[in-house]
Design a protein around this nucleic acid. Structure first.
Lengths: 237, 237
DNA sequence: CTCCGGTTCAGAGCGCTGCTCTCTGCGCGT
DNA sequence: ACGCGCAGAGAGCAGCGCTCTGAACCGGAG
């Protein structure tokens, strides 16, 4: 009976996959606002009401796509970082950052889905949390490795993390940063924010008439600056 | 005839204002996706088709609201900065940054409109450019004043701006930064990006389970760090 | 004062959307 | 072999953006 049940479940899972695939295509073509359950159903040759057997509402479909998008950018970061030698911490950092930007430029609508304004009445289900953390895990691991190798030397002359950050830092330390200091953790969050801030600004047109000639270089400069601040010093140096 | 024409135009302008006001309220209540021309018309006691005499499409109404939002955050920044003594450059910077965050937290949907994913098929009319520049003008002026007062000392030990940034920097220098160096201009853009990146992350829930206890302090830390990097050193020092 | 051009509004209507409900039929497990 | 459950079909509801047509109005010209 297990096999038969899996048979039913399998065709169901396949159909869910097809729906998501078509939806992802429509999303990529005309954005979240243009995603229509009826259009997806039409393209799949079924009637609109049938879709509701698989996704109880349009928002649920969008949520599934959000999770997939988080997962995709996380995978892109992981892959780019894994291609670097483990002891080249700066290279790993730069590769991770560039992977975020590259993925975002290739999938602007999906990026907008996860780092833009929440589409409908905003729900933000908890399910996204795990998928959303993948990039952060990678970046934290780079810092950790550099620290363990004794190659993490945070830039002096900057203000310390506020005292009120201690409790948050403690939670993050247990989950990700092991034995990094509050200051470094705060800088890591700021770096993470900067990276996505740049990509969002670039994608949403805020750099029009501001940065025009070489945005890739400007992005690299931001990523490199953040690396310096955190202490991922250039090479052996 | 001038008077009569103005009479007609006046009632027209008034009605446009009323429409925008109701639309802004609906926007604030349920976000851009929930903004409905029919609902606005209903609330104003007119039929939906009449709205089209004033705004040729829903997107045009949204565009008007976008410009208003840019203007509002620009005004908030200007006001906060103007309240500081002119020679307290760091205070002026911090006040400007805090004004952005405060306004965004008070008007999340309007903020999402200007710093979130572009709503429909994305058009981004040029009209928004001038309104969007107001905050940048303020921040650039602070840097300029500090530089003229000889109180701008950029943090050493960070990578220089890429060579390809020179042409963009030149354009920005002529428009805003007068005689600041390419490096400082690049850092100013990065600071600007960081500020909005933080606010966006906070608003869109990226800091859930990450920064929970005191986000205001964390934001201040980001703003202060950026000030240090640019060279708006703390007080006389 | 009358008439005329232009602006504004009312209303109907088109095609689309998300979503619900009912009904039929096929496939699976017993 | 039979009955149950799930997938799909189809109609329908309310809402949306947007268009078109006709009626009311209002200020200036003859």
């Amino acid at each position: 009976m297990n096999a038969s049940r899996t048979a039913r479940e399998r065709v169901r899972a396949e159909l869910i996959g097809e729906i998501k695939q078509v939806a992802r295509r429509q999303l990529a073509e005309q954005g979240a606002a243009g995603l229509s359950l009826r259009a997806v159903a039409r393209e799949l040759g079924m009637v609109s009401s049938a879709i509701y057997r698989y996704f109880p509402s349009r928002d649920d479909l969008l949520t599934a796509l959000i999770i997939e998008a988080f997962d995709a950018v996380g995978a892109a970061v992981e892959e780019a970082e894994a291609a670097c030698p483990r002891d080249r911490h700066l290279d790993r950092w730069m590769a991770s950052c560039r992977a975020v930007r590259t993925w975002a430029l290739a999938h602007p609508h999906e990026y907008a889905l996860i780092h833009g304004s929440p589409v409908p009445g905003y729900v933000a289900p908890e399910d996204t949390a795990v998928a959303a953390a993948r990039d952060g895990i990678v970046m934290a691991r780079i810092l950790r490795d550099a620290h363990e190798a004794g190659e993490l030397s945070p830039l002096p002359g900057l203000p310390p993390a506020p005292a009120s950050f201690a409790s948050d830092a403690q939670g993050l330390r247990e989950a990700l940063f092991v034995d990094l200091s509050d200051d470094v953790i705060a800088r890591a969050l700021a770096a993470w924010t900067s990276i996505y801030g740049f990509v969002s600004f670039e994608l949403y047109g805020m750099y029009r008439n501001v940065i025009e000639t070489d945005r890739a270089a400007a992005f690299d400069h931001t990523a490199l600056t953040q690396a310096h601040i955190m202490g991922l010093a250039p090479a052996p140096r």
